[in-house]
């Protein structure tokens, strides 16, 4: 009985740590803004289609759906919706997530990706 109580306590603390502790902290949108300016603005803008499609509203949007941007067939026909998980995989290796895509650009570090995704989410009003 005592043992079980301890186990429950531990897992509750574990859950608590997962929910509010730094191990599960969402990305830092402020740092993400700097990373975005440095790494993404060569090809993207928030409000204009350039080499890549405009990004405002991308979080929560279906891939390949910005009007007036000429996507690869692969991205256009993808059924992916952009959220934390899909954006993380896209930025880690776009070709692995959507073979035939045209971005090619990779962000190696998971914490950089998390911060960039937090920024995209914030700028999408989500």
């Amino acid at each position: 009985m005592i043992r079980r109580f301890t186990a429950v306590t531990v897992s509750w603390q574990f859950l608590f740590a997962l929910t509010v502790g730094p191990a599960f902290a969402a990305g830092d949108a402020e740092r993400g803004a700097q990373l975005y300016e440095s790494r993404c603005t060569g090809c993207h803008s928030l409000d204009a289609n350039r080499v890549g499609p405009m990004h405002r509203g991308v979080y929560g949007r279906k891939a390949g759906t910005v009007a007036g941007f000429s996507y690869s067939p692969a991205v256009k026909n993808s059924t992916i919706v952009w959220d934390e998980a899909t954006l993380d995989r896209w930025l880690a290796n776009p070709q692995e997530l959507i073979p035939g895509q045209r971005m090619g650009f990779r962000v190696a570090l998971p914490e950089d990706r998390a911060d960039i995704v937090a920024y995209l989410r914030r700028e999408s009003g989500k």
Binding site: R39, T41, G42, C43, V51, G104, F105
Partner: peptide, 10 residues
């Protein structure tokens, strides 16, 4: 600068 960083990333 954007192009530099874009090339590095691809």
């Amino acid at each position: 600068r954007g192009a530099t960083n874009a090339y590095i990333g691809v």
